[in-house]
Design a protein around this nucleic acid. Structure first.
Lengths: 134, 134
DNA sequence: GTCCCTGCAAAAGTTTTGCATTGCG
DNA sequence: CGCAATGCAAAACTTTTGCAGGGAC
């Protein structure tokens, strides 16, 4: 079992948790660092990263990597939902598109894997970028 | 316009292209470097990366990043298909699960984005890892 | 001759780790 | 006291870029 170790809610951890939950733009670790820094000037990168990993382990926060961008993004909404990424500016938005119940079974049958879930990311253009080019 | 520049098929490029097309395991740039090195001992990392980017631009190869792993993987199959990732060992396999035609329209309606496509990655356990734990 | 390609080395960027210090319990 | 958490600095990694040399056309 992955029994999460006990958890101490320090000011740093509370600040990071709040920053992720308050954000709606899927911030990167760097973004979160920048947003938390003003309230805790002493905080360092390492604490932010360690905290984010801890929060992910505890299921308080969801980590996602989308598209060709190699940087991790964090989502305070841990409920089931999907994402859309703008190919123009890289923005990531939430969206929920229910798939038929059969897809996981289909995937399992086709691959031989046991399938527990999926990640679905749509690719397109946000309203701002849609009119520009292409 | 993204008019692909002319293209010279050097031995290095041919080797990288062949390595990706022959692979079925979605190798990383590092994997490809290791596989190509024996046949071209002089080759360097930079050439592999530059070549992979070139091949992606020309649509000869597909780049994908899946899961919490920040490293890029490459797929010689450029046709429409999906992937399954093993949460145990990190293996990535191909799978094709057609989704209803309505999903892209649903996503567009729900997000306000123009939606051109999607990436679908199932998460589960490969046959080898399924029996082990959890 | 010109231009593209390569290889090496260094740079850039993200994430992790080591270690001494601090401070709660 | 004992142990976990922090902050700083350095390390680990992946990927990109600068530059000089060399080959193709």
């Amino acid at each position: 079992m992955t029994s999460p170790r006990p958890f101490r809610l320090t000011p740093q951890r509370a600040a990071v948790l709040r920053a992720v939950h308050d954000a709606s733009d899927h911030p990167t670790a760097r973004d979160i660092f920048a947003r938390v820094k003003p309230g805790l000037p002493g905080i360092g990168f390492a604490t932010v990263y360690r905290t984010l990993n801890l929060l992910v382990e505890h299921g308080e926060v969801r980590e996602l990597r989308v598209g060709e961008d190699p940087v991790g993004r964090y989502d305070g909404d841990t409920g089931r939902h999907d994402h859309v990424r703008c190919a123009g500016c890289g923005a990531v938005a939430d969206v929920t598109v229910p798939l038929p119940d059969t897809v996981q079974g289909d995937a399992a049958a086709a691959s031989g894997f046991r399938v527990d879930g999926y990640e679905l990311v749509f690719v397109g253009r946000c309203p701002g970028c849609a009119g520009e080019r292409l």
